Amino acid sequence: MTEPPLRLRSDLLASGTTADEIRHALRSGSLKRIARGVYVDGTTDLDPLAQHRARLSTLRGTLSDGETISHISAAILHGFDLWDVDLTRIHVTRDRASGGSRRDTRHTHTTPLRPDEICRVDGAPVTSIARTVVDLARTLPVDQTVIAGDSALRMYPDTALSLPDALAAGRARQGIAKARRTVEFLDGRSESPGESLSRLRIHTAGLPAPALQHELRTDSGVFVARPDFFWKDRGVIGEFDGRGKYGSDEPGSTAEIVHREKLREDAIRSLGFEVVRWTWREVFEFGPVRARLVDAAGRARRRW
């Protein structure tokens, strides 16, 4: 991701801009403050994630000895999917036993860090992927952790081998029991935040775990589909419909996409499977989706 050009107060002053002119630019909106003494052009449209990344870029080379970017901030630098998390604070971890603090724009954690729990991202010290996943699992709600953790395993599959050791290293830290339960549930085959949340809702609804991204083929081996969720024994396919595929401005594109989806579902049903779809809104009101899944199994004449 391209970061916006940053304008430092020290550089502005050195170039002849006065402090009064900087204050006027901030009031008028021609400059936007993203951190103390750090600005971007007022026309730059920064969402919270982009603003957090920009603020992180100002830390490089300024971290104290023993400080490492961690938690949500590390997740952003590693490229994890994040959803509904507080991005107002930069998170760093100091390699010491005490002395942590939480301020308006910075959360300093204190806990020992092993050398193998630190890596470099764009020259900055950052907690490793496995350590970051475990830290998120300890400190974030389950929904947010599953989204971030699934994306970490999807992008970095070998991380699964490192997670048991990362959990063992954190055995004395607060929230580690919750982290163990959550990490065990993570699955890199979930391809989007909506699929991750859907899988979690399926689990909490007491339904059997589905197969993920299973390829469906005809008896002759012709590829038909690769649905999000598949219950072979129940004869049911589940699809999270959270893609923005119906919002294209291209004339006729919506009708064409809907037509292709209908043909795809017809092909799936020709194999003897029922198809149940749900949307983002229904992920948060999953009871009706559960009922549709159970009804679909009944139509397929396979007991749920």
Rank of each mutant, 00 (worst) to 15 (best):
F230V: 12
P288V: 10
W278D: 05
P251C: 09
R217L: 11
P288T: 10
R226N: 11
K245V: 06
F229L: 13
S270E: 13
R226V: 08
D266N: 13
F229K: 05
D295V: 00
R234Y: 14
G272T: 08
D249K: 14
E285G: 14
V258K: 09
R290F: 01
F240K: 05
S270L: 10
A267Q: 01
G252S: 05
P227V: 08
P227C: 09
P227I: 07
T279I: 03
G235E: 03
P227H: 10
A267L: 00
P251S: 10
R277T: 07
S270Q: 14
W280H: 12
G272H: 09
P288G: 05
E256R: 15
R217A: 14
R234W: 14
I237V: 15
L263A: 09
V236S: 00
F223I: 12
L271Q: 11
E274V: 04
A297G: 12
V289N: 03
G272Q: 10
D228W: 06
R269F: 06
R264N: 04
E274S: 04
V283W: 03
T254N: 12
S270Y: 00
L271G: 06
W231V: 03
G242R: 10
G244M: 14
V289W: 00
D219R: 15
F240Q: 03
G238A: 08
E265R: 11
Y246H: 14
A300C: 07
D295W: 00
S253D: 15
G221D: 10
R277Q: 06
S248E: 13
E256Y: 12
E239M: 03
D219L: 13
D249G: 15
D266W: 06
E265I: 07
R234D: 04
R217I: 13
R292H: 05
L271N: 04
F229P: 01
F284A: 12
R299I: 01
E265K: 05
R292S: 09
S248Q: 13
F230K: 01
T218Q: 02
A225N: 09
E250I: 14
R301E: 15
A225S: 14
R269A: 08
V275D: 03
G242H: 06
A296I: 00
